[in-house]
């Protein structure tokens, strides 16, 4: 593993690192869900986390915005260092709210709030204390455009978010995640509840978004990882088996285990 990281890192020496897991581990109570994860997340690239169910990829993703802090009995080990300020996101003295203001998240099932389309997007701004109406309108419009939803909803911003189709709801959630101008967006299997057409539009959107923001995505769908990601991490039972440039991981994986998984021999 360390060799693999090293070789890739040298191949991408010109890339900036946005965040990095260092000896990262995670416990749900007594159960060790993740151990000894060392992995870079490159700036303005899409990094995909793949692996069979229960391998810990969602657990890893949700550590980046300290989602586990919401539940008792969870424990982090090691560090997740965020650049350029070199902050350890997991440190006791770092407020999880600060982390979530820098790193936003899109969930597996679209979860718009039972509020209007406008208020859904504006919420990220309101928690940051923005009250100026025209400023809010500008930012909401900008975010909806960024999420490729503006043209579909510009005449009904006061409709409920729940009245949109599944794919539109997920793009609304992406707009909500974008509104706050995050440094990283976490996607937790964002298309697993969507039909193929909606999936294609979300994938296209993610590819556009990486111009501006770093993306970390968990996916069950290996074709999706191959299509949209620049880097891929293959995980198995709480460990990072292989990390590398997506093309390499898929075409010429260094570990037999990775090859078995991506060729469908197991998983």
């Amino acid at each position: 593993m360390n060799n693999a990281t090293a070789s890739n890192a040298s191949a991408h020496a010109n890339l900036a690192i946005k965040a990095e897991c260092r000896n990262f581990g995670f416990h749900y109570g007594d159960f060790q869900a993740l151990k000894d994860i060392n992995m870079p997340v490159y700036d303005k690239k899409v990094t995909a986390l793949i692996g069979p169910s229960g391998c810990g990829k969602s657990t890893l993703l949700r550590s980046f915005n300290r989602m586990h802090d919401l539940y008792p009995g969870n424990r982090y080990q090691g560090e997740i260092i965020m650049q350029p300020d070199n902050t350890n996101l997991l440190a006791q003295e770092v407020d999880p709210i600060e982390v979530r203001m820098r790193i936003s998240m899109v969930f597996q099932k679209p979860n718009p709030f039972p509020k209007s389309i406008f208020e859904n997007v504006a919420y990220s701004l309101r928690v940051r204390g923005m009250t100026n109406k025209s400023e809010l309108e500008d930012r909401v419009q900008h975010s909806l455009k960024g999420a490729a939803l503006w043209n579909e909803v510009k005449h009904r911003l006061n409709d409920l978010g729940a009245n949109l189709s599944g794919g539109q709801q997920q793009r609304l959630c992406i707009a909500r995640a974008l509104a706050a101008d995050p440094e990283i967006i976490l996607f937790d299997e964002p298309t697993s509840a969507l039909d193929p057409i909606a999936t294609a539009s979300i994938e296209e959107l993610i590819t556009e978004l990486k111009e501006k923001v770093t993306i970390l995505i968990v996916t069950h769908n290996m074709q999706q990882a191959a299509r949209i990601s620049d880097f891929t991490a293959y995980m198995y039972i709480g460990e990072l088996v292989e990390f590398g440039v997506t093309d390499q991981v898929f075409v010429k994986p260094q570990k037999k285990q990775t090859e078995d998984y991506i060729t469908g021999r197991f998983g």
Binding site: N65, M67, L70, I97, R100, M101, S104, M105, F107, K109, N111, P112, F113, P114, Y123, S124, R126, V127, R128, C173, R176, A177, A180
Partner: peptide, 19 residues
């Protein structure tokens, strides 16, 4: 998932309760 959505936006517990 609604609660998590609110917290993921950076809301505090009170903001989540109130909003």
């Amino acid at each position: 998932i609604i609660r998590e959505g609110s917290y993921a936006c950076g809301a505090t517990t009170w903001q989540t309760v109130k909003d």
